[in-house]
Every structure is written in structure tokens, then in C-alpha cells.
């Protein structure tokens, strides 16, 4: 069998995010792309990945993709199921989780995330979004955070309208000042490439472009002047196994 000619941009994003998870990691998973990526990782290179969902299911091993964070299949396949106060207080807050996986409606160059309102006036928003959910404390307390988000000027903005979850705040030292014990965003995985914070400035820098994507496309989809790593590399395209497992998951 030959490799399928094209992985879609969305498939490339999911595969790139899955690769960022290491075998044995304990991963706090949200629904949608994070859950798809985490389940793909568990079925490929990271069979001992521990999936933790905010519904209180720890060590879930779902045979199909869950449709919500409280899908029954998570409880049925978990090592243990705990209450919601317990999942946040005993498991997330003390730093027992390695990786938190978050999405964003808006994201700025320091990886701060908005999922609350679009518009300048909180009391009279242009768009009312769902809000915080578990994200502020996931962003604060997981050892590190991976953000998975579609790359566009609407999302990648100079300044987020509302800080729902803190990335690096206004820059170096801000996490420590706020008493946030995790190290913050390690990667931002998009449909165009991968960004990582600069170790000195904490500013998100483009480190990888997915196959077929140009620097100009990434710049055009970013609402600030995008910094590009000097050693910018092309993401390894999805392997035959990654793609077939991902497609089987999404079809099931």
C-alpha cells in the first residue's frame, strides 16, 4: 500500500500534536482536536499515555473517540473515576499532570488564551464565548501546555480581548510573579506549522512549517509580526500508520 497522497491540513495538525506527547505522560485532555490527538498518540507511539478528563475519569482507554468530556465510554474504561472537585484539587492543582492540552478562540504572541468574549466590553460583548471551563487552572498547574488551534488572523491576535488562561502573561517572569507553577505553553500546533516560545523572550516563534506551507502563508495568518526560527524545519509528513489510525478513529 502506498502512502495516501495528501493528509489534510487538519490531519497534519492532529498528527503533529499527537507526536508531542511522550509515552507515559499524564495528559489532561479537552474534547475535540486535543482528544483526537491524545487518542492517536495512545494508539501509535505512546501506548502508556494516561488520559485524564475533567469529568473525573483518570486513565481512560476509550475504544472510540469520546463525544464529550463526560462520555460514558471514559468512565467505563478508566482506571478510576473521581468527583469533579477531586479531579481539580487532588490531581490537577498539585502538579500531578504532565501535559495540558488547550484550544483557543484567540491567542497572542505570549500564548495567552481567550475563550470568554470577543470585543472590548465584557458587559456588552460582540461575541459571547463559552468561557473558562477547566482551562485557567490547566494552564496554571500542568507541567506544560500544548495549544492546538487553527491558524488565522482572527485567532492569532496582537492582543487577546480577554485573558481567560495565562500563557506567559506580558513576558518573561510573569508566570512566577503570578505564582503559576507549571512552565506554560511548550508548543502551539496549528494547521500551518508549529510555534514554540523563545527561551529568552517567551515570544511564540515559528519553528516548523507543515509540508507545502510557506513562510508567507504563516505570516499572513498571524496578527502580529511573526518571528521565524533560524533553523525553521519542515514537519515530517504523517506516516502511513499515523494517517490510517487517525482515519479509523475519526470514522469509528
Amino acid at each position: 500500500m502506498t502512502r495516501p497522497a495528501h493528509a489534510s491540513a487538519g490531519e497534519m495538525m492532529t498528527v503533529a500534536a499527537a507526536r508531542a506527547l511522550k509515552d507515559g505522560d499524564r495528559c489532561f485532555v479537552g474534547i475535540g482536536k486535543p482528544s483526537t490527538a491524545a487518542n492517536l498518540a495512545r494508539r501509535t507511539h505512546a501506548p502508556r499515555l494516561v488520559l485524564v478528563y475533567e469529568s473525573g475519569t483518570i486513565g481512560a482507554k476509550p475504544g472510540r473517540l469520546p463525544l464529550s468530556i463526560g462520555d460514558g465510554i471514559l468512565a467505563e474504561t478508566a482506571d478510576t473515576v473521581v468527583s469533579v472537585p477531586e479531579i481539580f484539587n487532588y490531581w490537577l492543582q498539585p502538579g500531578r499532570i504532565d501535559v495540558g492540552f488547550l484550544g483557543a478562540a484567540q491567542l497572542d504572541r505570549f500564548g495567552n488564551i481567550n475563550t470568554t468574549v470577543i470585543g472590548d466590553d465584557y458587559a456588552d460583548p460582540r461575541v459571547r464565548l463559552p468561557g473558562a471551563g477547566g482551562a485557567p487552572e490547566i494552564a496554571a498547574s500542568c507541567r506544560e501546555v500544548i495549544v492546538i488551534v487553527t491558524h488565522s488572523r482572527r485567532t492569532f491576535v496582537e492582543k487577546v480581548d480577554f485573558v481567560t488562561s495565562v500563557g506567559f502573561g506580558a513576558g518573561p517572569g510573569d508566570r512566577e510573579r503570578h505564582g503559576l507553577r507549571g512552565t506554560g505553553p511548550r508548543l502551539v500546533v496549528t494547521d500551518l506549522g508549529v510555534l514554540a516560545p523563545d527561551p529568552e523572550t517567551c515570544e511564540l516563534t515559528l519553528t516548523h512549517l507543515h509540508p507545502g506551507v510557506t513562510r508567507d502563508q504563516a505570516r499572513a495568518a498571524t496578527g502580529w509580526e511573526l518571528r521565524i526560527a533560524t533553523d525553521l524545519t519542515t514537519t515530517e509528513p504523517p506516516s502511513e500508520t499515523e494517517l490510517s489510525v487517525l482515519r479509523a478513529l475519526e470514522e469509528a
Binding site: A132, P136, A140, V163, T164, S165, V166, H178, L180
Partner: peptide, 13 residues
């Protein structure tokens, strides 16, 4: 008491 919200815009609202 919890470790939460710090650095976000939620406490202001």
C-alpha cells in the same frame, strides 16, 4: 481556597 484565576481577567469581572 484554591490555586486559580491568577493572571487572568476573571477576577476583574
Amino acid at each position: 481556597v484554591l490555586r486559580g484565576y491568577t493572571g487572568t481577567d476573571l477576577p476583574a469581572q
